[in-house]
Design a protein around this nucleic acid. Structure first.
Length: 319
RNA sequence: CCUCGCACUAUGG
């Protein structure tokens, strides 16, 4: 049973939702642990409905179930429901508090995030990191820096968060020095450095970080596409988008990067092709954001009729 | 023994 559970988890972690579902449905006894795994699997993908349904169907819940459901809400931006759940939970752990803290930060409620942090009974490294990123994401560079300096322990995540905080505030030198002071680095920290250069107008350095990387994630490719587009090298951006497909799986963000690059130069055909190909070849479900990019692209390229038609036929209510 | 919270990429704020 334990190894079946481990297998279920492996599917869930890799985003193989359908395999996980099949396995879960075939399991004779559904333990609390396997329910929790499915709950997390639904929560991390765009299946909030399934998550809530499973949560309601479950016979028993433990702290992990509550926390997982809480995270499912916050990952879908449902702060209200998350709060409700948080308040009605029979018990809370550090993870519960940290989840809420992050949710507040993401909804631009820094004050609430800070107040949660202050009301926590104890703090661990994850909680400190969450507060550090809360400051960083809200543009409070000085507070972030102070928190970083005052932390008694730091890990890779602390450093990476601080690095991008500097980068986003145009402090490339500070970002570089954080990067250099790191005792170990992983793909995420390299990506952070790559976009630090790109955001601060150093395309050449960004490119050399990219080519020096051992393995590149979608995020690395997306950063490079954007870096080219921001430097008006749209042809290179488009070429990079296609090149990515050989080694990585483009995602929803990749398409946005690509479409925005096309908007820059009014490259309607390339954008159209990318949109269609992402839907057909990668089974991407286009979001509102994708449609609004496409409409922007068509309209700016002079295809007013096509833009109108897209507005009329898209599966979203126009705003 | 297996399951939960924090860092990188788009847009917006």
């Amino acid at each position: 049973l334990v190894s079946w559970t481990a297998l279920l988890n492996a599917f869930a972690q890799r985003g193989e939702l359908h395999r996980a579902e099949k396995l879960f449905e075939g399991m004779k006894e559904r333990t609390l642990v396997s329910c929790n795994i499915m709950l997390a699997a639904y929560g991390q993908t765009s299946c909030l409905e399934q998550a809530t349904r499973l949560f309601q169907l479950m016979q028993r819940w433990d702290l992990i179930s509550w926390n997982t459901m809480l995270a499912a809400y916050t990952q879908h931006g449902r702060l209200g429901e998350a709060k409700q759940l948080f308040d009605s939970m029979p018990e809370r752990s550090l993870a519960s508090w940290t989840t809420m803290l992050g949710a507040c930060a993401q909804s631009a409620r820094l004050e609430e995030a800070k107040s949660l942090f202050d009301r926590m009974q104890l703090w661990d490294l994850v909680a400190w990191n969450a507060m550090l990123s809360a400051y960083a994401q809200s543009g409070y560079l000085e507070e972030a820096r102070r928190m970083f300096e005052s932390m008694k322990e730091r890990n890779l995540i602390s450093y990476t968060a601080m690095l991008s905080a500097y980068a986003q505030n145009n402090q490339l030198w500070e970002a570089m020095s954080v990067f250099e002071s790191m005792e170990c680095r992983n793909q995420v920290s390299w990506n952070a450095m790559l976009s630090a250069y790109a955001e601060n107008g150093h395309l050449q350095e960004a490119k050399s970080v990219f080519s020096g990387m051992e393995d590149r994630s979608v995020a690395s490719w997306n950063s490079l596409v954007t870096a080219y587009a921001h430097n008006k090298r749209v042809a290179s951006a488009i070429r990079t988008f296609h090149e990515m497909k050989q080694t990585a799986e483009p995602d929803d963000i990749s398409l946005v990067c690509m479409l925005r690059a096309c908007i820059h130069t009014g490259n309607v055909d390339a954008g159209r092709q990318a949109f269609v190909s992402m839907v057909l070849d990668y089974r991407l479900q286009p979001t509102k954001q994708h449609y609004s990019c496409m409409i922007d692209l068509l309209a700016k390229g002079g295809y007013i009729v096509d833009a109108r038609e897209l507005i009329a036929t898209m599966p979203f209510v126009p705003e």
